[in-house]
């Protein structure tokens, strides 16, 4: 096997199910392939229960997998040692621990575990908690707490950082501040694997988005191209003879001109005329809303979009 110098994460055919023979099985991850290149920011996007956290926790070495091939920084997380843990950074979902310690104490204590940690005081300033260095954790706001979690995740200068739903429950201002922090890490060359169910977050932070649904990857690509070019084809909708009509077309201007001639009312207006270029959100919703089996192709995704638009 070749070295994974250019690759931080390589996953093939990952499977994991929960449950027992008695209670029945739930297939949380049903054959996921995933690649993350060095220096890349990849967002795993999907609804709750899609298998995002299970996948990431297998990559972090917290869970055993049932099947599949997993290499993280060239090693199998299931057999990873301290040296490997020193090379990754993990920001878990919710955190409410260590309440009685101060920000400074927690960062300094965590830094002790790593061979070449960042300077704790500088790091606290980087995440904007300078004034809170002597504050106990229980007194931090949700956004401050999350920025501290990131500080603890990167204090060991990880080559790969896992962020699991980092901004759930944030107000817009806290989210923006958090994004800026992640962007500065990205610009510093840290490889980041992010899970989120916020589309705007994935679009803003990620080089590449992987959409998962019911344990499988249903789409993958840079945020701007997700779902393929056809998924972005404009949709023209209008009312004709009392019924809603719509058409997906590459040439919306031509269609509108034709409608102006053929479907306009006495006042020269086409009733309820709209030209909509499906947003990333439309594409995403169609991806996770459609049946898994039907989504392999962009046509499937597009049909879903058109149908959804048509009903509005």
């Amino acid at each position: 096997m070749e070295t994974t110098g250019g690759q931080a994460v390589r996953v093939r055919g990952l499977r994991k199910r929960y449950g027992t023979a008695r209670t029945g099985w739930k297939q949380a991850v049903a054959g996921v392939d995933l690649d993350v290149g060095r220096g890349e920011v990849v967002a795993v996007l999907g609804p709750n229960g899609a298998g995002k956290t299970t996948t990431v926790e297998i990559l972090e070495g917290f869970r055993a997998r049932d099947d599949g091939e997993v290499l993280v920084l060239g090693e199998d997380p299931a057999r990873a040692d301290r040296a490997w843990r020193a090379r990754i950074g993990v920001v878990l979902q919710d955190s409410r621990d260590l309440g009685e310690l101060t920000v400074g104490e927690v960062v300094r204590a965590t830094a002790r575990s790593y061979p070449e940690p960042r300077d704790p005081a500088e790091l606290i300033a980087t995440v904007g908690l300078e004034e809170k260095a002597r504050t106990r954790l229980r007194a931090l706001s949700g956004g401050q707490r999350r920025r501290l979690d990131v500080a603890l995740g990167i204090v060991g200068r990880p080559e790969l950082l896992f962020l699991d739903e980092p901004t759930t429950g944030f107000d817009p201002q806290a989210r923006r501040t958090f994004w800026e922090l992640v962007e500065s890490l990205r610009d510093g060359g840290t490889t980041i694997l992010l899970t989120t169910h916020y589309l705007d977050e994935a679009a803003r932070l990620a080089d590449r988005v992987v959409v998962v649904r019911e344990g499988v990857v249903v789409a993958e690509g840079p945020p701007g191209t997700l779902g393929g070019a056809e998924a972005r084809t404009p949709l023209v909708s209008w009312m004709q003879d009392g019924a809603p009509r719509s058409e997906v077309t590459d040439r919306p201007t031509e269609l509108v001109a034709r409608l102006a001639r053929e479907a306009a009312g006495p006042d020269g207006e086409v009733p309820h005329l709209q030209v909509v270029r499906p947003s990333l959100e439309d594409v995403y919703l169609s991806l996770i809303g459609a049946e898994v089996g039907a989504v392999g192709t962009t046509t499937g995704a597009q049909t879903g979009t058109a149908a959804e638009e048509g009903t509005r």
Binding site: I88, V90, L92, G156
Partner: peptide, 15 residues
């Protein structure tokens, strides 16, 4: 500590 995630957090570090 098991309940509030301290242990899981420590497990993610080289401690």
């Amino acid at each position: 500590e098991r309940d509030d995630g301290t242990l899981k957090r420590l497990r993610a570090t080289p401690l």
